[in-house]
Design a protein around this nucleic acid. Structure first.
Lengths: 163, 163
DNA sequence: TTCAGTGCAAAGGATTTGCAACACC
DNA sequence: GGTGTTGCAAATCCTTTGCACTGAA
């Protein structure tokens, strides 16, 4: 099992992401633009999960005028399609959240419902079982959502202390 | 492994659900009302997943004037708290969906992203692994979200035929 | 009798969309 | 140059809230 942590993207990594994005755009006869590049860069600055609003705010904070909300919203699906971002933490009830997918290995989440702490994990046994299950139903698996929710160690301790 | 199918609630089952709901309400010093009963009944009529809007429409269709949208929205969380309903299919991107939880065993979902077909499954091995994982992080697990997405057998066949 | 429940309409908030000006390829 | 792209504002859609009135306990 592996636990991994996100790091801010380095310039070379950003370049690779831009190349990949450009490819996807080309395949769909769409165009690379300064605004889209700014959005890719802004997205890759995040190390945790974020939503379209947060990304837009960050872009505003950077250049004061990098991209409008509408454009950010319009771009998110493209970033997902290009494998730069992926949706995450669907159970959070906080609307649509994203995280970096580019050059990161697949992982799932363990979430503390008290303090909000998120632990990323990758557990090969789950992956295998999922394949088995899909095979049993003759499904071709494309992705999955797996979130475990509970109380983390310290929140449990705190609860006990209070009692 | 077990695959189960939802059936419309029988009258005795509805009665039991109402009793349980009443209990939860009492514990919170809330009151049982005709409108709330209608909502419980309406909810239990569903055999698949549905949202607040759909439930409200069904109530309208039944009695023309059973409950307003506002009341339905206000009641949903209570139904979840009482274990009558639970949220489901978070990955659908269709907003908040519910399904019956009352007197149903736990299950997860395998979803075809082409035709929308949903298969419910319960795979004990997953449950065990989840417990192991939680133990490893000293988490007290309260629930989980596990959705497998892909293309079902017939949609794959259709795709091959087209090619 | 009291405190919660309800409907209605208004408020919110997050996205989406129409459109005219702009700018990649 | 012909399309795709943007920003802005307006439009949507889903959900929540304020309030005066009704009703359960």
């Amino acid at each position: 099992m592996r636990v991994e942590r996100s790091v801010p993207a380095s310039e070379p990594r950003i370049k690779r992401a831009l190349v990949k994005f450009r490819d996807v755009l080309r395949k769909k006869s769409l165009r690379m633009t300064p605004v889209r590049e700014a959005i890719v860069r802004g997205a890759l600055e995040h190390t945790d999960h974020f939503d379209a609003q947060k990304l837009a705010r960050r872009l505003q904070a950077n250049g004061v005028h990098e991209a409008s909300m509408a454009t950010v919203y319009r771009t998110m699906p493209l970033l997902v399609e290009a494998g730069i971002l992926q949706q995450t933490l669907l159970s959070s009830g906080e609307g649509v959240l994203y995280e970096i997918a580019f050059e990161r290995e697949h992982h799932d989440h363990l979430v503390c419902t008290v303090c909000g702490k998120v632990i990323e994990f990758h557990f090969e046994a789950f992956e295998r079982l999922q394949k088995d299950l899909a095979a049993k139903y003759d499904f071709e698996l494309t992705r999955h959502v797996h979130e475990l929710l509970g109380r983390c160690s310290s929140c449990r301790r705190a609860a006990r202390a209070r009692a």
